[in-house]
Design a protein around this nucleic acid. Sequence first.
DNA 1: TTGTAGGCGTTATCAT
DNA 2: ATGATAACGCCTACAA
Lengths: 344, 344
Amino acid sequence: MNKPATIKDIARQLNISISTVSRAMRNAPDVNADTRKAVMALSEELSYQPNKLALSLKQKQTHNIGVIVPNLDYVLSTMVKGIDEVALEAGYTVMVCQSNESFGREMVNTRRLLDSLVDGFIISVSSETKVFDHFKKIQEKEMPMVVFDRITPHLKAPSVRIDNMDGGFQATEHLIEQGYKRIAILAGPKNLGISNTRLEGYIHALNKHKIKPDNDLIIHCDFNQDYAYVATQELLAGKKKPDAIFTISDRMAIGAMLAIKERGLKMPQDIGLVGFNNEPFTNLVTPRISSVDQPSFELGKIAAKLFIERVHNSDMDHVEEILKPKLCIRESSQRIAPKNGRVK
Amino acid sequence: MNKPATIKDIARQLNISISTVSRAMRNAPDVNADTRKAVMALSEELSYQPNKLALSLKQKQTHNIGVIVPNLDYVLSTMVKGIDEVALEAGYTVMVCQSNESFGREMVNTRRLLDSLVDGFIISVSSETKVFDHFKKIQEKEMPMVVFDRITPHLKAPSVRIDNMDGGFQATEHLIEQGYKRIAILAGPKNLGISNTRLEGYIHALNKHKIKPDNDLIIHCDFNQDYAYVATQELLAGKKKPDAIFTISDRMAIGAMLAIKERGLKMPQDIGLVGFNNEPFTNLVTPRISSVDQPSFELGKIAAKLFIERVHNSDMDHVEEILKPKLCIRESSQRIAPKNGRVK
DNA sequence: TTGTAGGCGTTATCAT
DNA sequence: ATGATAACGCCTACAA
C-alpha cells in the first residue's frame, strides 16, 4: 500500500508549515499567491487527496447518508436512484443497505452506519419491523432522519410517501365501475402500513358505492407471488368466489394471475385484476395487468431533498409529503370499452 | 446533537487513564478484573460506541467495501445481495453506488469512495466505460479490487463471472435443435464484454452445426427493451427474415416479443425466442420465454469471498472464477415436445 | 496492572 | 502571510 501523500509531505518538501499548506489548499484568502501556486503544483504532482476520515473526525460530519431499504426491487431501487441523484448533487455520498425485510438485519445495518459512518438516515422500514428502538436511537442522537415509502406512525420524522389510500381507492373504484361486484383484496402483512392504507382505500371505495365489505374477501398474506398464488387458489375454490381481485403489489398480481389461469378463468371477462406499482412486466404479460403507478424516482428525489433540508432545520418532523399515484388501466380489468379510444 | 461518549469521558468519570479504558474495552489480557467491570458498566450506561472514524484513521482501514454497479436491476441487485451477505459476515460494511451505466458517474463514485472511505472495491463495469484510469488508480494504491459479472480484459484483477460463451452456446444450440434455421441474435453494445462473449457462443453453436453465420442476423443494439423492439421490427420487415431470435437479455427479449406479436407471428411455431438472465417475468408472459439462468446470488457471494481473500493475499490477479449458466427451456422456443414430460 | 506520550491527517486559534 | 500548537477519538509503545 504505497501510502497517499498528506499535507505534511507537501509542507516538508516545500519547507513551509503544515497550516500554510492547509490554507493554500482551501483557497483561504490570506496566503501568498506564489506559495499557493507551489502548493498546488506539488499536490498535483503527488496526486494529493485530502483524507476524508481525518476531516470527518475533525468536523464531526461525514457527508454520507445511510439509506436503509428492505430490498432493492423495482420500486425501491428506482427510489434509491432518485435519492442518489439529489444527494450526489448536494455533495453527499449514499450508503445503501438492504435489510432483506429482516428486523435483525435492519438493526445491524443501522447500528453499523450509526458508528460515525453517516450524518443521518433515509429509511424505508422493513415489513418485519415492529419495534423501532434502533431508529429511535438515531433520533436520540439528534441525527437527521427521513422516512420514505414505507412510513410508520411510530417514527416522528419528515417523510414522503405516496397516497396509498388513494391508490387503493382508484383501483377499487375502477373495478366497481367496470361492473365487478365481488371484489377481493390481497393485502400484505397486517403490520405493514402501506398494506393497511391500501386496504382502507379499498374499503372507502366500496362504501362510496354502497357495497358492503366482506371479510372473506379480504386476505392478508405475505408480500410475494407464492403466497398470493395460494391465497387466490383458495379464494377461487371457496363458495363465495370473487369476480375481481385487487392485489397491493404487482408480484402478488402475478401470483393471482397464475391461479386464475390455472382455473381456466378469463380476464377481464370472468374476473378482473388490478395490481400496484406498475412494474414494467405488467405491460408484458397476457393479458396486460392494470396497475397503480407511483412516481418512484420523484419520491426518492424528494426524500433526499427533505433530508438535506432537515440537516439545517431540525423542526421538520411534521413535514409529510404525499405524492399521488395514478391507475394505469389495461386489459386485465377493462371490460367496458373506454369512450375515447384504446387501452394503453 | 448531544454528543456520544468517548473513552475519555469514561476515563475521567472513573478516574483512570484513557489507555486503561481502551484496554479494558478490547479485552486486553493485562487489565484488572474490577477495572474492566467498572469500565464495562459505565460504557454501557453511557451507551458508549467506539468511533469508527478515529479507528479507521488510526488503523488506516475502514472495513468498508465499495461496490460499484452500473444499475440495480434484477440480476445485479441479486448479486449485491450475495456480496452483502458474505461481507457482513466478515465484518465489512458494503457501500453500493450505481453508475447508471454512465462513465462519468462511475468515475465520480469511484473517486469519492477512494477518498479513504473504503478498503477496496468490488466492481461491475458500466457499459459506457472504455477508459479504465479511475479503476487503475485503485490498483496503483494497491487496494484490493475484484471485478464481477461485467469484467474486462483491461483490468488485471481477480474476477468472477458466468460463462457467457457457454450461455450463448446453450441458447443457440437449443434453437438449432428445435429446428430453427435462421437464428438472429440481438447482442448488446459492441464494447460490452458480456455482449461479445454471448455472441461468440452463438457463433460457436452455429459453426458446430455447420450453419454459416449471417451478418444480417447479428444485431448490436443498446441493452434495453425499446432498442430491441425496433431492431426486431426491422429484422422482421427485412427480406431475410429470421425464424428465431436469441436476445442477450430478458428485457431485450420482451422488446423482441412485442414486435413479434405485433406482426402476428406465433411463438414458438413461426419464430423461436430465447432470452438471458431468467428474470422472474420470463415465466409470466405468454408464451413463457426460454432464458439462460445465471446463479446471481452465488456469484455475488463469490465476489465477496474473493475480495476478502484478496485482502490478505495480493497475488490473486490471475484468479478467475467462472460459473456455469443453465438454459431454462420454456414455451417460446420449444416446438418439439421434450422426451420426458412437460415443459416447466 | 496502570499511566504517559506520541501519532493518525486535518483544521482552527493564536501568535509572530 | 506564515508558523506553532492543540484538538478530534483512538491505539500503542514504553515507562512506571
